[in-house]
Design a protein around this nucleic acid. Structure first.
Length: 420
RNA sequence: GGACACGUGCUAGAGCGGCCGAAUAGACCACCCUGCUAAGGUGGAGUCCCUGAUUACGGGGACCGAGGGUUCAAAUCCCUCCGUGUCCGCCA
């Protein structure tokens, strides 16, 4: 949720942000109007209520003889208070609905435009060159006995897979490398719940436009999370915390996504599945330090890419392609040889105070008052990374060289050989 | 799943339908006292919202797990839900 004060003082600024995202700026006018209506209704209720309270106290003090007269005088005031309260509640709710439609204010530096208008910040690492026809990740995975899509589909349907043998181990190795990197940088590891309550899902902004991406369990009124960001953000919900130093958590969890709008897209292999694993960094910090922390998160992500010997580029996502909570987002995209293109392996978002305001996460400022903190998140390992690792390090005979950084997690194994 | 009990401020813990935003103790902050530490003394302090002035300051409303209800008036009575504890049952 955006800052209501900002909405009142500088609606034009909010409007510009909405426009940059390609959203309807009329939502801003609607919210401003709803805010006015709400305050009016509230004042009406509060003055009536104050009157009622005062008179009620008189009754408490009054003698027996005086009471009947006083009671009669207050009788219908009670009903008025009740009506005014209902009106105020309705107005409050209407305002909340209106203001929730407004997405986070994008930062000034964010490139304008839509999905294709990102700015490439840099390329790093060597692009793999092959003197043979490279196999795609699924083909390699099948040669190694590492990926089984057929049985995934048999058991759970399309977009489900089994990782098997060295494939399963390799995934775990990548996860552990990411976890250890985060932990050595001071992150506290959390294994979070992957089923969460509606208010937590809503608070993190995933029940907005992309609600149909989320698995819902109506029998229990719970949602399956598409990223541990949800639970990690909810971890400190409704708390006043100390962010004199950034509060850093790293979560490891399975993620579930319906991929509702992706029919026919990336149907081959494990690029886009309904279920995968992810190690996610999450930081609560002073809003003044958020931009710096964002750069640090990106830095750690790039260290992972380099450790895995991947060729990648870093992009600064355009305003129109930002999630509703994000004020700025960098993606690290790895080169996938058989696709001849870069594919997103990590994403890191600065959500400024937007998420924290919805979730009631605050810190005490120098003025002694509680203010919303800033939250940031960033991927540091996912199942999808197998795609880039397998394809980049493959050899003509179908074997795959293990990047040095992963070897300690695979019992020192240097090369993965095809099954007989 | 069944039965019973409980859910109050940072923590512990009182609370009669009106005098309760809420006793008391601890922790906390400021000051005083003491050579230092400990102890002691005095004072302060919750969150959110509306509002009048805006450097300091006032006025009002809401909040005692959540949501409803009864009442002129609810932390206090009633209902539903959620959570916690204990016992019983069930359990890949």
């Amino acid at each position: 949720m955006i800052d209501v004060q900002l909405l009142r003082d500088q609606p034009e600024l909010v409007k510009a942000s909405q426009q940059a995202r390609g959203n309807d700026p009329a939502t801003v006018d609607a919210a401003v109007a709803a805010d006015l209506a709400r305050r009016e209704a509230l004042q009406h209720f509060e003055s009536l209520r104050a009157e009622q309270k005062a008179k009620s106290k008189e009754i408490g003090k009054a003698s027996k003889d005086e009471r009947p007269a006083l009671l009669a005088a207050v009788q219908d005031l009670a009903q008025q208070v009740k009506d005014a309260q209902a009106a105020a509640n309705d107005a409050e709710e209407a305002f909340t609905t209106a203001v929730m439609k407004i997405e986070n204010i994008v930062l000034d530096e964010v490139p304008a435009g839509g999905e294709d208008d990102f700015v490439v910040l840099r390329h790093e690492g060597d692009k793999s060159e092959f003197d043979f026809e490279p196999r795609d990740h699924l083909e390699i995975g099948e040669l190694l006995g590492a990926i089984d899509m057929t049985r995934g589909a048999k058991v759970s349907g399309t977009r489900f897979s089994f990782l098997r043998g060295i494939g399963a181990q390799l995934e775990l190795a990548i996860m552990q490398l990411g976890l250890n990197k985060a932990i050595s940088n001071g992150f506290v590891m959390l294994t979070p719940p992957t089923l969460v309550k509606p208010e937590i899902m809503r608070g993190t902004g995933f029940l907005g436009e992309h609600a149909d991406e989320v698995y819902n369990l109506p029998a229990d009124d719970l949602y399956l999370t598409g990223t541990s960001e949800v639970a990690l953000a909810g971890y400190h919900a409704d708390e006043i915390i100390d962010v004199s130093e950034p509060l850093r958590y790293v979560g490891w969890s399975t993620c579930y996504r319906r991929e509702a709008g992706s029919a026919g897209k990336d149907t081959r292999g494990i690029i886009r599945t309904h279920q995968f694993n992810k190690v996610e960094m999450f930081v609560y910090t002073d809003p003044a330090q958020a931009a710096e922390e964002h750069a640090r998160l990106l830095g750690w992500q790039e260290e992972m890419m380099q450790a895995l010997g991947l060729h990648y580029r870093v992009i600064d996502t355009a305003a129109g392609d930002l999630g509703s909570s994000a004020a700025r987002k960098y993606d690290v995209e790895a080169w996938v040889p058989t696709q001849g293109t870069y594919r997103e392996l990590t994403s890191t978002s600065n959500c400024t105070t937007f998420q924290a305001r919805r979730l009631g996460i605050r810190a005490r400022g120098e003025d002694g008052k509680a203010h919303p903190v800033a939250t940031l998140n960033g991927t540091i390992a996912t199942t999808r990374w197998l795609v880039a690792v397998l394809e980049t390090h493959q050899q003509a005979d179908g074997s795959v060289l293990v990047p040095e950084a992963l070897r300690p997690y695979l019992g020192g194994q240097e090369i993965l050989l095809p099954k007989e």
